[in-house]
Design a binder for these strands. Structure first.
Lengths: 257, 257
DNA sequence: CGACTCATTGAGTGGTCTCAAAGGTGGTGG
DNA sequence: CCACCACCTTTGAGACCACTCAATGAGTCG
């Protein structure tokens, strides 16, 4: 139930590789276009990049991180644990998502973040956040926008864990991740494959690993998903949405810091 | 399980009563002091006050509210519902808390808010939010700060619902609300009384009303709380924290818009 | 090859659910 | 003023969902 391993530590790689002007994420229609001055500011706000390997802990509960990050590529998840090891996954992080905002704004992180796949992060200096708000109010507003979006996702997850049945929860989770990944073009031409284990699903849904397995098997039996070694392949997104009682409209254009 | 009633509608009372310079909340050590210019701006940013009676729905899911609010006095709660009426309470709103930020920033509200007691709100124009970010970056940062704080509370609630036992959940909820209320001086000289029904507790914890009643009875039997007609009296906060496995540090100074 | 993680399945337990019924309170209308 | 109704709280009984314990096989890595 708890995090079984905490084996490796993040490898700092402060070399700047991709300039913001040629950021591949900005080409996606999902992100709002920036003005030239905004782009210039973000470009020099970015201090470098950081690469984390799969399974490494990027941020730890209790830490006072001096940085704010944006996921450039890869998958990660936020989680909290109780003292006896029970773990709750709070949300997943995909390209374009901010990481470490709580720590940057309030001071101390009260959750941890672990990489699900190799992750590349854009690193920003926390100390220059004031400057961002002062010189580019639109970017400050964007950060608030992203914080409100995270709150909205948490609302939905809380509704799931609190009030949906195990079957609905599982279907909803897969449909939700699919929704987020597909607007980023992560499914490519083929079907989306989500790099998580059943333990992750269990810790997200608030279920035991055994019951999660039996619930996922129902989804498999209905042909909605196929489970691979450490991954979930989405076969029938419409079927999943129907099983989940999905009602949400697709997300429109959003900011990217 | 669903919201039984939606009887009354908010009474608009756009009369300005309390000037921000004499806001009673600002006297509390819990809120960070404002500079004169910030206070002047907020004071003219505030459009008026709104009074909602207990049980009235202040904001509805799907609405495009043109306003942002701060709770001046009273209790309320945020919630979402599924189509068949299952309800999940997401968080509670106490004096000083922002209301309607998701709607103001992203556009559409995806949750509702209902008053638990008579509530007085400070009303702000959504249209002037850009102006706030542009002319007072510190206030823009404060709004982000409050959004990050809300996210943090949701993280904790999600951990509760997903991974704590029913008994721990109930104890944690009461201890959590007590923590928030006490820094606002809401308990006065006597013990804190929280104006909620057992149905609210059930919908917060993701439990049925029957099981919630039996769980709360255990807390009562141990002398930790006393249940009144529509209220919960906190008798032994240390006992509650012990039962909940409470580990959190007290919240420091925070902003107030 | 052994150690480990992940996925799977069966069996039995127990936490939580639904159904049902009761008393208390407050509000409302006859 | 009283009868009635709606809501809240409480309790019991039985059903069921999800849990723990246990064991197995497949795959990976050193």
């Amino acid at each position: 139930m708890g995090p079984i391993r905490a084996e490796s530590v993040t490898l700092p790689t402060p070399t700047r590789r991709i300039p913001c002007e040629r950021c591949p994420l900005r080409l996606l229609p999902h992100f709002r276009p920036f003005t030239k001055t905004e782009l210039d500011f973000v470009s020099q706000f970015k201090r470098g990049e950081l690469v984390a390997e799969a399974g490494s802990i990027i941020l730890s509960e209790g830490a006072h991180s001096a940085h704010l990050y944006t996921v450039l590529s890869g998958w990660a998840f936020r989680y909290k644990t109780l003292e006896d090891g029970r773990r709750q996954i709070l949300n997943y992080l995909l390209p374009g998502d901010l990481m470490g905002l709580q720590g940057s704004v309030i001071g101390e992180m009260q959750h941890s973040i672990e990489a699900l796949s190799p992750v590349v992060l854009c690193v920003f200096e926390r100390d220059r956040l004031d400057e961002l708000f002062a010189s580019h109010p639109g970017l400050g507003f964007d950060i608030t926008w992203l914080a409100a979006r995270e709150e909205r996702m948490l609302d939905e997850n809380l509704l799931s864990v609190g009030r949906r049945t195990a079957f609905e929860r599982a279907a909803y989770l897969v449909a939700f991740i699919h929704q987020r990944a597909s607007v980023l073009g992560l499914s490519g031409n083929s079907r989306l494959v989500i790099p998580i284990t059943q333990q992750h699903v269990a810790d997200t849904l608030g279920l035991s690993i055994v019951h999660t397995n039996k619930t996922l098997k129902k989804l498999s039996d209905r042909g909605l998903i196929r489970w691979h070694d450490r991954a979930c392949e989405v076969l029938d997104i419409e079927g999943l949405r129907a099983a989940a009682g999905w009602t949400e409209p697709p997300e429109g254009v959003r900011p990217l810091i």
